[in-house]
Design a protein around this nucleic acid. Structure first.
Lengths: 356, 356
DNA sequence: TCCCTTATTGAAAACGTTTTTATTCTGTTG
DNA sequence: CAACAGAATAAAAACGTTTTCAATAAGGGA
């Protein structure tokens, strides 16, 4: 009994192909082929090897696979974080998006890895780092600009990705998007039908592609009614609660103030309501507010608001699905989907006559 | 000119240690040692090799490093997703936590990988999978139960992790936590001082460790005032807006209803306000509400509420810092921190006499 | 002058896979 | 009966590192 003998009394190491080769008598090449269900290995050999693998609790070492195959099995998600003015709620529920992506990736070998970015330009640097250093097999990101440096870069490098949102360049790439043009059009149309003529559009940063989509829909609704659009009532800024509030205060102090408000997300909506409260105005009585809602929270606002609702988790699931299909080699042109949110009516949105 | 010659006209491949060995004339071993700043290699050799690496744009291939070193360079974060009743807002701002962790990990080779879990038990399975399959070098997770299966498992397996929250077992593990006992005590004390005697505690799931901490603080405040605690007014449930609203409606229909409410997060607070509105009660007039706020949103509620505020991103940063230090081998006992949130007074919280 | 120590670098092995190529064996065909 | 085709498996190479061990050179003391 040589006490130096190193192998026997070791704690149970993770089994490898080598281990399985020893226990079954086959070579490591055959083990690998059998487990990957290669047609060259005979059925009963496969069965024996699989049985041994099962019994040993074998799991392929991802680091080995990774090195050999060149794949990372990482889906990189660029997560924007608004370093806004002192920790403002921005209502960007990335948790839901990630949950959706995660559901789609379940069963695959892919894992989500997070890369926090500050803006789209920072995102381009992150994308470049990921591509150059081979940190992931593909990318998922949102907050698409009309001219998005990330999309330009990735399309040029032919690196797989899926975008939540569309840029305004005629490029072929996988994406999922909300029909913001339609939603803004429908919201504006509804307020016009309710008698409103001065309508404010609380919008995000104007460089964002969907901000432009919303403006397009907004203007189209006025044009359809033969009215001039209220371009002076378009507020472009952040997605924060503070921005919503400040916008209301500013707009309501204009000579011909808006009586209707179309908000871009829950956080701005809450800010708008706070601003109205400060002016002693009530939504549904003095003015009307229509919101867009990712997370089904507008029913709890005071008062409950009419909203366009699309659970953002559903978009996340589609992003994940498209990611896997893109990685598997499908053409980007086949991986594009546009969603229309549901209109949830909680207010009549009829302008009360006799309002200031 | 043999057209089969494979190397010369290839597109620029990523440089490797082998490439650098060829261009510098050193061996790959020396290259590796020089780049890792090993003391055995001479200063001028290091300089030459570093220069060549810089010029070639060399970046170590993580897959190679990973296989050789056995490290994954992954920080696995277990992200809870409440598959609550139809996409309810739960106010769990994981984006901020991830942002904080990400900041702390910047500069290191570590990346965040997300593992979505449904509850703590599901989390234990995820942890087991991560440990067994070697998917990460360490774990970060939140939503700690008084008896948390994840902590038991990881401590037993001696696998590095950092918890956001403390369990109730006397185990040594790295953690960051909010002093919820103190916060609940202070909130209760404040309402008692304002004349309230019937105070409701809107609490999360009772198995959560911090739910118990809150109850402890709640009771202690009554005991200090020589009063009997309102155990019948402790509502235990989700973190959703719906739960906040339903709790108010239920509690206010009791024979001796509460006049003060202490909420657990922003989402429940919004629900509480919605419930009060439905009962035609106003916070600050008919009843008082004190909230806990991770994301600085309570200033925009109607009315603005007195809150305990601690930007959750700060906790995230600490989690990331502790993670790196734990991975580097520091003892868990040295990696523990308890934060007290700031009290932000926005209401007097004095009970108005003559209230029902 | 010779040997021994020390400093520096080179060579080789190892991490765990997958894939390519080689080998062995069996059965068939001219 | 020799050659050959085909099937199954084994052997080896490769992915890009890091680490261990061996080799070489230089310098110093006897």
């Amino acid at each position: 009994m040589n006490p130096k003998k190193p192998q026997a009394q070791m704690v149970a190491q993770r089994p490898t192909v080598k281990t399985l080769a020893q226990t079954t008598g086959y070579s490591i090449g055959t083990i690998s082929k059998a487990l990957r269900n290669s047609p060259v290995v005979t059925a009963e050999t496969k069965e024996r090897i699989r049985e041994a693998a099962r019994k040993a609790g074998y799991q392929a070492n991802m680091r080995g696979v990774s090195l050999r195959s060149g794949k990372t099995f990482q889906a990189a998600v660029l997560m924007p974080v608004t370093v806004a003015e002192g920790f403002e709620w921005d209502g960007v529920e990335y948790t839901q998006i990630l949950s959706g992506i995660s559901q789609a990736l379940e069963g695959s070998a892919y894992r989500i890895s997070i890369h926090v970015i500050r803006d789209a330009e920072d995102g381009r640097l992150a994308a470049q780092r990921i591509v150059d250093a081979g940190l992931a097999d593909g990318l998922i990101f949102s907050g698409i600009l009309a001219e998005d440096p990330r999309i330009d870069f990735l399309v040029e490098r032919n690196f797989p990705f899926v975008a939540l949102g569309r840029c305004r360049k005629p490029l072929a790439y996988a994406h999922v998007d909300v029909d913001n043009d339609w939603a803004a059009f429908a919201a504006t149309e509804r307020l016009i039908a309710g008698g409103h003529r001065r309508i404010a559009l609380i919008n995000p940063d104007g460089r964002l592609s969907y901000a432009m989509d919303r403006i397009d829909g907004f203007r189209r609704a006025f044009a359809q009614g033969g009215l001039a659009p209220c371009d002076d009532l378009i507020a472009a800024g952040g997605l924060s609660t503070r921005f919503g509030k400040e916008s209301v205060l500013r707009l309501r102090h204009m000579p011909d103030p808006p009586t209707g408000f179309i908000c871009v997300n829950e956080a701005t909506t809450l800010g708008v309501l706070a601003g109205l409260a400060e002016l002693n105005l009530a939504a549904g009585r003095d003015v009307d507010v229509i919101a867009y809602d990712d997370i089904n929270v507008s029913a709890y606002f005071a008062p409950p608001l009419t909203t366009f609702y699309l659970p953002i988790e559903r978009l996340g699931r589609k992003l994940g699905e498209f990611f896997l299909r893109r990685i598997a080699g499908e053409e980007p042109a086949a991986l594009q989907e546009l969603y229309r949110p549901d209109l949830v009516v909680r207010q009549a949105n009829q302008q009360q006559r006799g309002t200031p």
